Structures are given as C-alpha cells and as structure tokens.
Simulated assay, not measured.
Amino acid sequence: MTPRLNAFLLAVLMLVGLPLYWFQFDSSAPEARAKPLNIDELRNLANSDKGQHPTEVRHELVGMRMSLHNQLAAGTGLRPIRVGVRAFELLIPRSRPIVIDAGTTAKIASDNGVTDFDAFAQQRIDHEVSEAGLRLRLLDHPVHRGNPEVRSPNAQPLPDLGDGAPRAVAPGVVVIPQPGLPEEARMVFVQLADGREFLFTGDVAQVTESWQSIRPGARTLADIGHPEKRTAIASWLMAINALHHAAPKMVIVPGHDPAAPQGIPWGFAHF
C-alpha cells in the first residue's frame, strides 16, 4: 500500500473507530466517587423499628425486553440480550405485604418494548398491590409504576425522602434515594427475620456486570454535555460494589437481569 492510502485508511479508522469506542464500549467515568453508603448504617436503620421483619421475598416475571448488552453495561458487547421486567413482594406474618414495583399493563408494556407479557402474573401482582400495606417503587417509569387502575387503599404513605438520606419505611426495609439520577430512582435494602439481606438496585444497575465491573450503560447522543449523569451512575455502582465487599452474603438484585434473582422464589401469593 502507498503511504497516502495508509494515511487515508488510518484517518477513516480514527473517524469511525474512536466515536464507536467512546459511544459503545468505553465505561469510564473519571470523576466518579463511591456514594457514602455504609452497611452498618443500613442495618441500624433496618432495626430501628423493633417490629416484625419480612420473612420471605418473592418475585413475578411480567415480561421481557430486548436490548443490546452494551446499552446496559458498556463494554460487554453488541450482542442482543433479553432482560426481565419483574415485581417483588415482601411477606410479613399477620401483616399486609410490601410490594416493590408493580408491573404494568399489556398496552403499556407493548408501548415500552416489553414482550411476552404475562397477564396471569400481572393479575397476581395486582391482587397483592390492592392488599399492600406499603408500595415501593424503584423508578418512576411506566413498567415500574404498576397498573394505574389498581388502588392500594391500605398502603401507608412514604416518609419524606427529599433530603436524599436513606429512610427506614418498615421494620427490616430501608429506601435509599438516589439524588443525581432521573425519574426518582431509588434502591431498597431488605433484612429478613432470619438475617438474610437483599439490595434491590433498580435501574442504576440493570444487570450484574453493571455493579461488578462498574460499567454504566453505553453513551448516547443525549449524554453529550451532561457528564454529571454518567458520573452519578458510576458513583452509585461503586457504592453497590463496596456494599457487596462489606456484606458478601447480601444478595444484589439488579434491575433487569435476565436470570431469576438468587434466593428469591418465583410467584406472588396465590389467591
């Protein structure tokens, strides 16, 4: 090849390759620092009310959504991945259940790219939502909010979370607001009566690779000029990773991992 052709090919490679790498594969966020989450603080909050802790966590799979792995965790590849849309319930003896997320409806699911919608699973979720003593939401988004026609007349109101500090909302249950992230993003820490612990990460860590390797999703054009959002996501991922090292037996439940959550049986309470 002539020097001129080599230079041309190198220029093309840089023009195409560098933006592709930066948008799709680069997971860096150099300004990120782990959010100050402490496992002892979360445990103290979980035990600040001496009432009955939940005894069991269960889940329902509402449907699946197709994505590229890179969109969820940059650098993990351009291969397609089917991710789950789930709801969770905490069972408490002689008390109303606590629901974490609440599914959606068939139409809303379709509008948001959710396939294989399970109407029977949603019926079970709707029933538990209508009986819930507390409703928690990991994200203010249509596939997290639940069926808008289902009410929870006995649900307690949440405390004010405006200062961004973790709050105990029930014995064994702590809500962790995520300032800096959109759509009222939250995590939930749960300590069961038998001592098992769970951290529901919501969409800040949609898949396991997100928090294990500190990989925010791939950049988009909308991210240009708004590096603070990516920095916030990476900072929360660092905090989750640090909590895992401080409490290695705690189960980290990503927002939309394809695999069923570890240690969480399938199926809401039947009626």
Rank of each mutant, 00 (worst) to 15 (best):
residue 25 F to I: 04
residue 22 W to I: 04
residue 151 R to W: 03
residue 174 V to S: 06
residue 151 R to N: 02
residue 269 A to F: 09
residue 36 P to Y: 07
residue 144 H to T: 06
residue 2 T to D: 10
residue 25 F to Y: 04
residue 4 R to N: 11
residue 122 Q to T: 09
residue 86 R to L: 15
residue 213 S to M: 10
residue 136 L to A: 08
residue 6 N to R: 15
residue 56 E to W: 07
residue 60 E to A: 14
residue 210 S to M: 07
residue 74 A to L: 12
residue 19 P to Q: 05
residue 6 N to D: 13
residue 237 L to Q: 05
residue 114 V to H: 11
residue 7 A to H: 11
residue 262 Q to Y: 14
residue 27 S to H: 14
residue 67 S to F: 14
residue 52 Q to M: 11
residue 251 V to F: 02
residue 172 G to E: 10
residue 257 D to M: 06
residue 17 G to K: 05
residue 33 R to D: 15
residue 196 R to P: 04
residue 142 P to W: 05
residue 220 T to V: 09
residue 93 P to F: 00
residue 213 S to I: 09
residue 69 H to A: 15
residue 207 V to G: 12
residue 221 L to R: 01
residue 242 A to F: 03
residue 99 V to D: 10
residue 49 D to M: 14
residue 65 R to I: 14
residue 241 N to H: 15
residue 99 V to I: 04
residue 223 D to M: 03
residue 208 T to L: 02
residue 113 G to N: 13
residue 45 L to N: 07
residue 75 G to S: 08
residue 35 K to R: 13
residue 137 R to V: 11
residue 234 A to D: 01
residue 123 Q to E: 08
residue 172 G to Y: 07
residue 172 G to C: 09
residue 108 I to P: 09
residue 189 F to T: 00
residue 161 L to Y: 01
residue 224 I to N: 05
residue 7 A to P: 07
residue 91 L to C: 14
residue 101 D to N: 13
residue 243 L to V: 00
residue 198 F to A: 08
residue 263 G to N: 13
residue 149 E to S: 06
residue 207 V to H: 12
residue 193 A to M: 04
residue 245 H to V: 04
residue 54 P to R: 12
residue 195 G to R: 00
residue 214 I to E: 01
residue 130 S to D: 06
residue 213 S to P: 03
residue 193 A to N: 05
residue 53 H to V: 06
residue 238 M to R: 10
residue 196 R to V: 01
residue 205 A to G: 07
residue 209 E to P: 03
residue 150 V to Q: 05
residue 256 H to E: 15
residue 179 P to Y: 07
residue 257 D to K: 00
residue 25 F to H: 04
residue 178 Q to M: 14
residue 32 A to C: 01
residue 83 V to D: 10
residue 10 L to H: 08
residue 119 A to G: 14
residue 26 D to H: 01
residue 54 P to Y: 11
residue 203 D to N: 05
residue 186 R to Y: 05
residue 153 P to Q: 04
residue 32 A to Q: 06
residue 249 K to A: 13
residue 21 Y to E: 08
residue 201 T to L: 05
residue 212 Q to S: 05
residue 249 K to W: 05
residue 23 F to Y: 08
residue 234 A to G: 01
residue 101 D to R: 02
residue 9 L to S: 09
residue 53 H to W: 04
residue 179 P to L: 11
residue 1 M to S: 12
residue 138 L to H: 05
residue 11 A to G: 12
residue 258 P to Y: 03
residue 39 I to F: 04
residue 93 P to M: 00
residue 231 T to P: 01
residue 67 S to T: 11
